[in-house]
Structures are given as structure tokens and as C-alpha cells.
């Protein structure tokens, strides 16, 4: 059986021909019902990857080349009408900031009902019922009354539940969750992650979970893809990539997370910051911050495959992390 989603050499640019490649040759596959954790520092191109799949890039962003095969359809080139039929129905998205994702002047009910009606020609009453059930499903108390409430009457966590309810309405094949818990309190974060996990498992929905947080990935994801400056630098199963990272950047990320089995060791931050995509050094983008860099790294390393995992580095790290 072929994969649900297969992204091949995706290139997304901002500013035609200016070389502002926010996503540069990214490839990955995702099977039905699986969870892919997409990680990387701020500005590495995670959100742009997500919005490329949704074809909701802000201007002047556009997909310059590559394929996004979703159930056999290339989303990079399919018609806008076809995209509209897929959005919300088979591919849904949850955004980072729940305070901004709901329209402040429309009731929550309106925003749920219109999402139902966008893809199903049912009577309004039926849509309303569906909306109410969806609210109940994500754990919002007294959903009937809450339908007529406005977003500002909800807390941040509740709003994110509403957004998740909307995303799950049509039991989509794929949900792109762009840091959906980053803006929330830690306790609420954890609740929402559990709910999300439960619901997507029920509906066999595949998830691309975009995050900075390796802890969340290790808890949720089957596969992981690490991005750096618009490129994929390492990908594979969670066990492989987090257990024995090959790329120095991945290792750096892991070392900067407090963890049980490295107790007593100092936390190590990766020195420096992600370079801006319009001022990338030639060769390996990570070179300026890498402690393993050599002269040879002034060329761009290709992805090297090791079974089902791959990394983009001339001098990969060997062995498990904590032994180094």
C-alpha cells in the first residue's frame, strides 16, 4: 500500500528568484494513521512546509518545485478548487496561537457549522448537531450553550479545543498541527496532547506535529524529521533519531533538553543562531555552529541513507548520545 503523503524535493520560495528558499528540497513520507514529528529551531521552515502542503502560503510565498503526493494527487499542482475540497475535509490544520485562529466577531457555533456545511450539504439543524457533538468530543462542557458564545469568552486552552474540534469534524486523513500547544500552560498542554492523541487514534488520522519540543515528539510521534535552515538534516524513526542521532544538529537539540537518563550532566545549548535564509553560507548550513566541521564541509552534504533513516552530514556522530 502506498503512503498517504509523499513529499518529494519540495522547494518553497519567498520572493521570486531572490533565492529566499524557506523550504529547500524537503522529502518525507507519511503512512496512514502515523505521526510525524517535524522539529527544528525557529525559522527553520517547519510552518512553511505545513502551509505548502495546505497551499496556504502567505504572499509572496510559492511552491517553486517538487511534488506533494497526497493519496496520489499532487497538491503542488492541483487546481485551487480541488484544494478547497480537500482542505478541512481530508487535510486539516491546527495553528499555533489559539487566540488568533478564531474569528472574534463570529460565534463559535457559526465557525463550526460553516466548517460542516463547507463539505456536506446537510440541513442547518443537522450541521448544528454535528457542531455540538464535536465540541463535546473535545471535552468542552455544556456544548449546546457554548455554541452561541464568542471566542473571547473562551480561555486559550478552550479555544484550541475548538480549533481541534473543527479540524477533526470530517475525520480527515491528515492533520497538520503547527505547535498547537506552545502558547498554552504546561498542564493544559499535557491535557490537550492526550486528547489529541486519543482522537486521532480513534479516527486513524495521520498527523504532522510541528514543534520545538523533543519531549512531545518522543511521546507522540512514530517518525521524526529534523529541519535546519530550510533543509531536512535528519529523518527516521523516533527511536533511531532520538536514541542515536547522526547529525550534530540533532544531537545538539537532544543535549539541550533536560532528561532523566542524562542526570548530572550539564545542559548544552547549541552555540549561535539559525542563519537567515537569505544569508546562508555556502556548503553545509550548520557549518558555523558545528564542532565537527572540517574544510570538506564547505560543500553541501547530500542525504545519506542508512536503512530507513537518513542524515545530511559528512562526519556523522556515531553511537548513542550520552556516551558521545
Amino acid at each position: 500500500m502506498s503512503a498517504l503523503l509523499e513529499v518529494r524535493n519540495l522547494v518553497t520560495e519567498f520572493g521570486k528568484g531572490l533565492g529566499l528558499l524557506a523550504v529547500n528540497g524537503v522529502s518525507f513520507t507519511l503512512d496512514r494513521g502515523k505521526v510525524l514529528g517535524l522539529v527544528g529551531e525557529s525559522g527553520s521552515g517547519k510552518s512553511v512546509t505545513g502551509f505548502s502542503i495546505m497551499r496556504l502560503l502567505d504572499k509572496p510565498g510559492r511552491i517553486a518545485s517538487g511534488q506533494i503526493l497526497f493519496d496520489g494527487v499532487d497538491l503542488a499542482t492541483t487546481s485551487e478548487g480541488e484544494m478547497r475540497r480537500l482542505r478541512g475535509k481530508r487535510i486539516a490544520m491546527v495553528f499555533q496561537d489559539p487566540m488568533m485562529t478564531l474569528n472574534p466577531v463570529l460565534t463559535v457555533g457559526t465557525q463550526l457549522i460553516e466548517a460542516v456545511l463547507a463539505h456536506e450539504a446537510v440541513p442547518k439543524e443537522v450541521a448544528r448537531q454535528r457542531a455540538r457533538d464535536a465540541l463535546g468530543l473535545v471535552g468542552i462542557p455544556s456544548p449546546e450553550e457554548r455554541l452561541s458564545a464568542y471566542p473571547h469568552e473562551f480561555s486559550g486552552g478552550m479555544r484550541q479545543r475548538v480549533a481541534i474540534a473543527i479540524a477533526l469534524l470530517h475525520r480527515p486523513d491528515l492533520i497538520i498541527a503547527d505547535e498547537p500547544t506552545t502558547a498554552l500552560d504546561v498542564t493544559i498542554q499535557s491535557q490537550i496532547i492526550s486528547e489529541f492523541q486519543r482522537l486521532t487514534e480513534q479516527s486513524k488520522t495521520a498527523v504532522i506535529w510541528i514543534t520545538h519540543d523533543l519531549a512531545i515528539v518522543s511521546r507522540l510521534a512514530d517518525e521524526i524529521a529534523v529541519m535546519y535552515a530550510g533543509r531536512l538534516v535528519e529523518t527516521g524513526s523516533v527511536a533511531h533519531v532520538l536514541g542515536t542521532p547522526r547529525h550534530p544538529y540533532t544531537r545538539g537539540l537532544i543535549m539541550s533538553v533536560p532528561s532523566q537518563n542524562r542526570r548530572g550532566e550539564p545542559l548544552r545549548q547549541i552555540p549561535g543562531i539559525t542563519p537567515a535564509i537569505n544569508r546562508l553560507p555556502p556548503g553545509c548550513s550548520f557549518r558555523a555552529r558545528c564542532d565537527r566541521a572540517t574544510e570538506g564541509c564547505s560543500a553541501m552534504p547530500e542525504l545519506s541513507w542508512e536503512g530507513a533513516r537518513a542524515y545530511r552530514c559528512f562526519h556523522p556522530v556515531e553511537g548513542p548520545t550520552h556516551e558521545r
Partner: peptide, 11 residues
């Protein structure tokens, strides 16, 4: 964002 989200719903 809420306009983008509305688009993401397939409106």
C-alpha cells in the same frame, strides 16, 4: 490567522 484558518476549513 483567523482568515487563514477559515481557508484551512475549506470555506
Amino acid at each position: 490567522d483567523y482568515i487563514k484558518f477559515a481557508r484551512a476549513k475549506g470555506l
